[in-house]
């Protein structure tokens, strides 16, 4: 007798999303297994962020199915959506820290608002999470505007992991950072995710991040996943789209929007 296969942590089937006449996602199929780190790559404006926002329920997919732990998220009731979102954390491209709150309250926000923890109890946990991303106590009472871009990303990472989510989304985690800080953020992501045992879905076009973070890579182009495979295969695949993207060549099947 064989053990029943575990369903994927995230299962996406035929997801479509258009904004007016512009079709952004045109039938996405993608699975992410529990504990796996999948990175979706693709050029700017190919709908990578839209895909994550559809999974999170920030945007409603026009059609298709998104299942989290086997529970359908598309068209789910408010209560089901609230239960699903509690399992997730997200690091936004620009950090998206609340600039009216000090750093520690940003990190503790999910604990206070979602888990109902009182502020006094949440503060040490926020500080502990700040330490985990390499930030000292003195940062805790500063406001986001007083931090550098790299520090903001670290705080954003601390906020994403503070509630111990089962699934974490990373939207362009290294955009706008110098290569050294980008490597630090990548290392922190790998370490923290490993510690939590979380499933992650990352979108990026930074190949350094891909190689460091990913177990598996999927490429999004023209609203579809046109290739997916283990991270080791991205350098050896004969898929011309992946080759062009990985090696950053202007010549190839991918046409940059606006170019002749």
């Amino acid at each position: 007798m064989t053990a029943e296969a575990k369903p994927p942590k995230i299962s996406i089937r035929g997801v479509k999303k258009a904004f007016g006449p512009k079709v952004v996602l045109d039938g996405i199929d993608l699975d992410v297994d529990e504990g796996e780190s999948v990175v979706v790559v693709g050029g700017s404006g190919t709908g990578k962020s839209v895909l994550i926002k559809c999974i999170l329920g920030i945007l409603d997919a026009d059609s298709g199915s998104i299942k989290i732990d086997g529970t359908e998220a598309c068209g789910a009731s408010r209560q089901t959506r609230a239960e699903l979102i509690r399992k997730m954390g997200m690091l936004f491209q620009g950090g998206a820290l609340f600039d009216s709150l000090p750093v520690w309250e940003n990190v503790a926000f999910g604990l206070i608002e979602a888990k109902g923890m009182n502020r006094k109890a949440a503060r040490p946990i926020a500080l502990e999470n700040l330490h985990k991303v390499g930030l000292a106590d003195r940062v805790a009472d500063l406001y986001p505007a007083e931090l550098s871009g790299g520090m903001q990303k670290r705080v954003s990472l601390a906020r994403a992991i503070a509630t111990g989510p089962e699934i974490i989304f990373f939207d362009e985690p290294t955009t706008g950072l110098d290569p050294i800080m980008a490597d630090v953020i990548n290392r922190l992501i790998v370490e923290r995710v490993k510690e939590l045992g979380a499933t992650t879905l990352t979108i990026t076009h930074d190949m350094g991040s891909v190689r460091k973070i990913a177990d598996r890579v999927a490429m999004l182009h023209d609203g579809k996943i046109i290739w997916q495979g283990p991270v080791a295969d991205i350098d050896t695949t004969d898929n011309p789209y992946v080759q062009q993207f990985v090696f950053g060549q202007e010549e190839g099947p991918i046409r940059i929007g606006g170019a002749r």
Binding site: G57, L97, F109
Partner: peptide, 16 residues
């Protein structure tokens, strides 16, 4: 500003 810097989306992801 919260809308264009994704702070409103961040609220949603933090169950608020």
């Amino acid at each position: 500003t919260m809308r264009v810097t994704e702070q409103i989306d961040a609220l949603t992801t933090l169950s608020t």
